[in-house]
Amino acid sequence: MMEVRHLKKKYQENTVLNDINLSFQTKDVTCILGPSGAGKSTLLRCLNLLEKPTEGKILYEGKDILGKQFDIRQLREEVGMVFQHFNLFPLKTVAENIMLAPRLVKKTGKKEARECAEAMLAKVGLADKADAMPTSLSGGQQQRVAIARALAMQPKMILFDEPTSALDPELVGDVLNVMRKLADEGMSMIIVTHEMNFAKEVADRVIFMADGSIIEDALPDQFFSAPKTERAKSFLARFLI
């Protein structure tokens, strides 16, 4: 459903992504691993054009998203994103956070949007938090609200950028459980993560990146038991204690 061809991203003279070629299939869960600074976030953010690629092509359902006539807002409606730092809207309640985009973008009625928000909250295990303010929630709860917010747009795909990296260790599990459930339901997901066990268990495919390039693109079993490259081996070694 998404195809990346010869993608390049430079910040001034600094090449952050170098000739990335990938294609993502519907219902696949792809985990992107790699050391910090590898360009994982930049790649993810190019996919919904929060970052503008310097060169290359990105096709979404066959359409060139960098083309003049492509409406990027339509892609963003269909491809949700979950951020490391949640990015909830602090002046709005949990339910308002979730209702905002359906109301403004999809022009959903207030009542319907509210019902949808409650359903999404139930799905992430926070049915009782609809009228709470985001700041009164724990990090894990905030991130689950952020997932519910993305789900309320009925996306075809969700991009996750280190969704658990800002959380206290004991809160990581709740968020991963929600993501596991989405994977089981067949949601297409691209997940940048450092949770190796989660990747091993949930991913259909693992991409290992370093220095702006894709070093390995493999099945999880293959990648975790027999990485092909030295880079991947030494990277994985750091996670085995």
């Binding site: 929060l50 963003r76 949700g80 994103m81 951020f83 990015n87 809207f89 905002l100 985009a101």
Partner: peptide, 21 residues
Amino acid sequence: PRGQWEAGLSLGLSRLQVITH
């Protein structure tokens, strides 16, 4: 914070909607 922009835009809001809301 830039994250507010990014969250809004990533949900499909227009720039004007992000600004006003």
